[in-house]
Design a protein around this nucleic acid. Structure first.
Lengths: 242, 242
DNA sequence: TAGTGGTCTAGACCACTAT
DNA sequence: TAGTGGTCTAGACCACTAG
């Protein structure tokens, strides 16, 4: 039996109501006091739930008027750090992988720096072709610090994150991602079954564990004609004041 | 005299300390109780400040151990909704614009839908070439609902957002952005002074006011070799549980 | 003036980490 | 066992919106 905090329960309750359109855009939410009575919790607990709903884009608040259901265009969970498999599942596609190479190497300087490695520390380099519904979608080069994941071996069946989490207790925190447009080189084009020099989206990401330590440096190359990256941006210091 | 909430003051204090490297990565933060004594506030106020620092990526927390300064690679404010001028300023470049066209038009269906326009409602279409340090960086096509901004006129000197905010009381909330890679067509290549078919980053965004109403639908085309988009992603329901 | 969200307090108990 | 963060309460006062 899992213990779910009350504020999370309230968040989930309303997130579901809004996602399933039972509550419609611009509809007024109950007041904080009313929600408190409904769930039998204090106002501060309600506020924590509403703050989360605000940050996730489900509702918006107007001081002195109330909280209202937001006009969400995308029902997708944005700004969410997930792996390729999980992302494709959310898009209703089946994800698969083909391992292109898997080896222990000396990291390039930039990677060593990003992963905060000492001299001589090696990395596990996993290169995979990622497919959605059987069609090539991306090439992914992942560098993982070997001292953190000794004996790591990947077999293309499971999600890499699942292995890191289950076998090594890796607790994923957040990631910083850079995105730019480029053209595919010959080999990439071949793998992605597109014409050479076709546009691709290059995404590089350093992912951190909950304790703040980087555990992965990934370079992905997505087909420009197939993949769209979505994100929600806020005003103010990255969502500081909601 | 502006009234700044205590939790914001505490947030700003530590954000500054961390950004300026006075507090170093992995360094332990004072306990919540200690901070409360320092600033003479209650623990719940301290927690609100620390939660903000967590979300902005300045610190990370470990239950039972304490809060620690995070290993931030980028000092940039990520996930922050800003205009081109503001962004370039943060990158230390000077931004300028050349107006390519400016007219009142019937919106394409997709735009009308995104901006939630009724039949026959027109939009103000502003197309600009955006330059950084005098070099072409992006082409930006912005659709604005004319009924919201009657008599709007743009003169290339000010920031568009500044006008919307000052003259029309437009209070920017957040935006949803889609990003993909494509190639420049002939005219775009010419404007951006790159070769035809060079890779570009296409970004489209619907921006909402604080009250949840969409006020802008923008289509930008950035030089692939000049512009990198950065973003921070979190685990869990988009930063719900910190 | 009434309603509603924004800020803040003082204090309690639980859960996780370390020794 | 002690330290620390996670959850939660009951209640107060302020600031903004609306009639």
């Amino acid at each position: 039996m899992e213990k779910i905090p009350k504020h999370t329960q309230i968040f989930q309750y309303y997130a579901k109501m809004i996602d399933s359109k039972i509550l419609k855009p611009d509809e007024k939410m109950p007041t904080e006091e009313e929600i408190g009575i409904l769930f039998n919790v204090s106002r501060i607990t309600v506020r924590k739930a509403l703050d989360s709903l605000c940050q996730s884009g489900h509702i918006y608040k107007i001081h002195g008027k109330g909280s209202f259901v937001a006009h969400k265009k995308t029902n997708m969970q944005l700004n969410h750090l997930i792996g390729f498999s999980e992302e494709m599942r959310l898009l209703g596609k089946s994800a698969s992988s083909r391992i292109l190479s898997q080896e222990l190497v000396e990291p390039p300087d930039s990677v060593a720096q990003a992963l905060e490695l000492g001299k001589g520390q090696k990395v596990y380099l996993l290169v995979r072709l990622r497919l959605a519904d059987g069609n090539p979608m991306a090439i992914e080069k992942a560098y993982l610090p070997f001292h953190r994941f000794p004996g790591l071996e990947y077999d293309a069946e499971e999600s890499l994150y699942a292995i890191l989490s289950q076998k090594y207790g890796c607790d994923i925190g957040n990631g910083e991602q850079s995105i730019y447009a480029d053209r595919a080189d010959k080999r990439e084009a071949e793998l992605l079954t597109i014409k050479p020099f076709s546009p691709v989206l290059r995404i590089s990401r350093v992912t951190y564990e909950k304790d703040g330590k980087p555990f992965e440096d990934v370079f992905s190359t997505y087909r420009g004609d197939q993949y769209i990256f979505k994100v929600r941006l806020g005003r103010d210091g990255s969502f500081v004041t909601v």
